Simulated assay, not measured.
Amino acid sequence: MLTACKKYDSWNTVVMGKVVDENNQPVEGMSFQFLGYERKGLGTLTTFDIHTQSDSEGRYEVAFLIPSSTDEAVFGGTGNDKFKFGTTHDLLRESEGKYVDFISYLTIPKRSYGETTIINFQVIKKR
């Protein structure tokens, strides 16, 4: 018996987490960006660009059908009026129960498209 394989044109991917301050208090209104790129020759094309903000409990969530043409998806914090990353504050990412330095954006591997990725952050005053 032969069966046809279904080809998926996109993957419903969720990125969610929480952002807290130095005192582990929730940070409301922190902006985040979820971006996708397709490689074209020597350049890239943006396949999607989504923005979200943390709520009063510091939680954020973005869900998106990543187009199959997306070669790379990245997620990162873009700050807000109170927290200016690189100027007044740094953004740390939770890794193995500790907060570690976070540089710009985190790549969401293609193997994780269609899954839920949890990324927790902490905002601290610039060191």
Rank of each mutant, 00 (worst) to 15 (best):
P26D: 09
P26L: 03
P26A: 04
V27A: 04
V27F: 04
E28L: 10
E28Q: 14
E28M: 11
M30C: 02
S31D: 11
S31E: 13
S31Y: 09
Q33W: 09
F34Y: 15
L35F: 08
L35K: 15
L35Q: 14
Y37Q: 12
R39T: 13
G41Q: 12
L42A: 13
T44F: 12
D49Y: 14
H51N: 11
H51V: 08
T52Q: 08
T52D: 08
T52W: 02
T52E: 07
Q53L: 12
Q53I: 13
Q53C: 11
D55T: 11
D55A: 12
S56Q: 13
E57L: 15
G58N: 05
E61D: 04
E61K: 15
V62C: 05
V62Y: 00
V62T: 15
V62M: 09
A63W: 00
A63I: 05
A63D: 08
I66S: 07
P67T: 10
P67M: 13
T70Q: 11
T70E: 12
D71H: 13
D71I: 06
E72R: 15
A73V: 11
V74Q: 15
F75P: 04
F75R: 02
T78Q: 11
G79L: 08
G79E: 08
D81S: 13
D81I: 03
K82N: 12
K82E: 14
K82D: 12
F83D: 07
K84C: 01
G86K: 04
G86C: 05
T87N: 05
T87R: 09
T88G: 08
H89R: 02
D90S: 10
D90H: 09
D90V: 00
D90M: 01
D90I: 06
R93I: 01
E94I: 00
S95Y: 05
E96G: 07
E96P: 02
G97E: 12
G97C: 00
G97T: 00
Y99L: 00
Y99C: 00
Y99K: 01
F102D: 03
I103L: 06
I103F: 12
I103G: 06
S104R: 14
S104G: 10
S104W: 05
L106C: 01
I108Q: 07
I108N: 01
I108P: 05
P109F: 10
P109Y: 11
G114D: 06
G114Y: 06
E115I: 01
E115Q: 14
T117H: 02
I119M: 11
Q122R: 14
I124M: 01
K125H: 04
